[in-house]
Simulated assay, not measured.
Amino acid sequence: MFTTEDTPLPGTQAALAELPPRAGLGLKTGHFLEVLDTQPDIGFFEVHAENYMVAGGPFHHFLGLIRQQYPLSLHGVGLSIGAEGPLDQQHLKRLAELIRRYQPQSFSEHLAWSSHGPVFLNDLLPLAYDTPTLKRVCAHVDQVQNALKRPMLLENPATYLAFQRSTIDEPEFIAEVIRRSGCGLLLDINNVYVACINHQRDPQAYLDALPLHAVGEIHLAGFAEDCDSLGDRLLIDDHGAPIDQAVWQLYQQVLERIGPVATLIERDNNVPAFNVLLAETQRADALLRQVGGQP
């Protein structure tokens, strides 16, 4: 298991510093030039690691320039932490090289799986929460942290179905992974709301059961709404809409409990003009200042 006493990779001491307790934004390629030209007052930027797993090119050129001005978070979507098979060692190697290159303040991945043998599925799929899965996920998290020589954050999932064979409640499962592995929690509040509505659970009770002391970053995003075959509400975590008021309310409640923490505004579909996203970061920043006792 990774511990902070392990020998870090060269230059990673500074990278282990936390993200600032401010609002950040997912960095989109269409906003590269605007960010560099205007240098907006944003706490940090986050990128998907898999978009930068090449040696060079324009993405690296612009990210390198922006990294000189802002803290950076790397967010993985392809490690397949929950898969039954072993982790992809080449993927892990590319990830370690990317972290050495940019020295991000944070790295996070999903509590999900997206691969089976040689087949990669373009989705983040749910797990059956039982003892064998718990042991496997903990082993994979340990492997990642040992390879990267740093702690990671694990993100709670947005789900649309649950396995009948599950014997552990999801928040309890997450808490136990964190306890055994020493990783932190990326608390995606939109995922909490989406999953709880879909499974007819109380979002507040779900949050109460999570190890909120381990939160190292928060994600906020929007969702799409539909109905299932029974006519019940079905929420889709599509990151394609403004943050819902119910999610804002849960976010404020969490901040009032744990204090200011780095908060990312996610928008991956129907991406609006940069100033629209900037307004959402400003709303989150206002709440962060409020709970921190700042004007």
Rank of each mutant, 00 (worst) to 15 (best):
T7V: 13
T167V: 11
L36K: 08
M1L: 12
G56H: 15
H219I: 06
I174G: 08
I258K: 06
Y193H: 10
A224R: 01
A83Y: 01
G85N: 08
L87V: 02
L87E: 08
H140P: 04
G259M: 10
H219K: 00
Y70W: 02
F32N: 08
A175C: 09
W113M: 10
A162I: 11
L220H: 00
S106M: 13
M152V: 15
L19I: 07
L288Q: 01
A241N: 11
P40R: 04
A17S: 15
G184F: 03
F223D: 02
V144R: 07
S108C: 00
L124E: 07
G85R: 04
V254W: 09
A221F: 06
L287M: 13
N191S: 02
L153T: 03
V35G: 07
G222N: 05
P104R: 03
Q145W: 00
H219W: 01
T159W: 00
L207E: 00
P20L: 05
L207G: 09
H48R: 09
P211G: 08
V54E: 08
E176Q: 14
W248N: 07
F2R: 13
L250C: 04
D6F: 12
H239L: 10
L125T: 06
E217G: 01
K135V: 14
A209Q: 08
A15Y: 07
Q253M: 13
R283C: 08
E172P: 03
L19Y: 05
T7C: 09
Q294M: 12
L72F: 07
A209Y: 06
E172I: 14
L79Q: 10
A23Q: 07
P10L: 05
A96P: 09
G85M: 06
E109V: 02
H219R: 06
E217Y: 00
H60M: 06
Q252F: 10
E280D: 12
L9G: 14
V276F: 04
E97W: 03
L264K: 06
D244K: 11
K135P: 01
K135L: 10
R101S: 00
A49H: 01
R179E: 15
S106Q: 13
E217K: 05
Q90E: 14
D41N: 12
G292V: 13
Q204K: 12
L277Q: 10
R283K: 15
G222D: 09
A262N: 06
G43E: 05
E34V: 07
R165L: 14
Q249H: 12
L185C: 03
L210D: 02
V276I: 12
E84D: 15
Q143N: 11
V254H: 00
D37N: 02
R267D: 02
D142W: 09
N190V: 07
L127I: 09
Y52F: 15
G56V: 03
Q200D: 10
Q90I: 15
G182K: 09
P132Y: 12
V247I: 12
I178S: 11
L154D: 01
I258H: 08
F274A: 09
G11P: 08
G64P: 08
I236T: 04
Y102H: 11
R67Q: 12
A279S: 10
Q89V: 13
D244W: 00
Q245S: 12
D37L: 03
E46V: 12
A128W: 03
A49G: 13
L264E: 01
S229R: 14
A112R: 07
R150V: 06
C227F: 15
S114C: 15
